Amino acid sequence: MKFEQTHKDLISYLIACIMVLSGIVLAYFSFFILHLIENSILGFISLGITFAGAIFGITQILRDKFKAYEVSTNKAIIKKLKEQEEDKKEDSE
């Protein structure tokens, strides 16, 4: 089975959401069982939020950069093709 980019993004998003939700669940159980939230649980929550932010942010930045590169490349190709057509017209005249 071959993974496409959309599948890879979906898996990354799901893992990021699971990390954040697991941190929230741990904090909930810790607070209602022990009546305090341990430092290790706060650290896990912060790592989960940082990981999720990195996944969402990096994916979006890379997608925007590749789209911008694709647009600029397409414009350059179209410009070059128009120049070649103009050169052929000048040569035929």
Rank of each mutant, 00 (worst) to 15 (best):
K2W: 01
F3W: 09
F3T: 11
F3Q: 08
E4Y: 04
E4P: 00
Q5Y: 02
H7Q: 14
H7M: 12
K8E: 09
D9S: 11
D9T: 10
D9P: 00
L10E: 05
L10D: 06
L10P: 00
I11G: 01
I11Q: 09
I11R: 13
I11W: 07
S12K: 07
Y13Q: 06
Y13I: 14
L14D: 01
L14T: 08
A16N: 06
C17F: 12
I18M: 09
I18G: 01
I18D: 10
M19I: 04
M19R: 13
M19K: 13
V20E: 05
L21M: 13
L21Q: 01
L21T: 04
G23D: 01
G23T: 00
G23W: 00
I24T: 10
V25R: 09
L26N: 06
L26V: 01
Y28I: 03
S30K: 02
S30N: 07
F32L: 05
F32G: 00
F32E: 06
I33M: 13
I33W: 13
L34S: 07
H35R: 09
L36Y: 13
L36G: 02
I37W: 02
I37H: 06
I37T: 12
I37L: 14
N39K: 09
N39A: 09
S40R: 11
I41R: 02
I41N: 02
L42E: 03
G43H: 03
G43C: 07
F44R: 01
F44G: 03
I45V: 10
I45Q: 06
I45L: 11
S46W: 05
S46H: 07
I49Y: 01
T50C: 07
T50W: 07
A52Q: 01
A52D: 00
I55F: 08
I55H: 04
F56W: 07
F56D: 02
F56K: 02
F56I: 10
G57A: 10
I58Q: 11
I58W: 12
Q60G: 01
I61T: 11
I61M: 14
L62Y: 11
D64P: 01
K65R: 14
F66V: 13
F66Y: 10
K67C: 07
K67S: 14
Y69W: 14
Y69L: 15
E70C: 04
T73E: 15
N74Q: 08
N74V: 00
N74H: 09
K75D: 09
K75N: 10
K75F: 07
I77P: 02
I77F: 09
I78N: 12
I78K: 11
K79S: 10
K79C: 03
L81K: 11
L81W: 01
L81P: 04
K82S: 15
Q84C: 06
Q84R: 15
E85L: 11
E85W: 06
E85P: 00
E86R: 10
E86V: 03
D87E: 14
D87F: 07
K88G: 00
K89C: 01
K89V: 03
K89Y: 04
E90W: 04
E90A: 08
S92K: 10
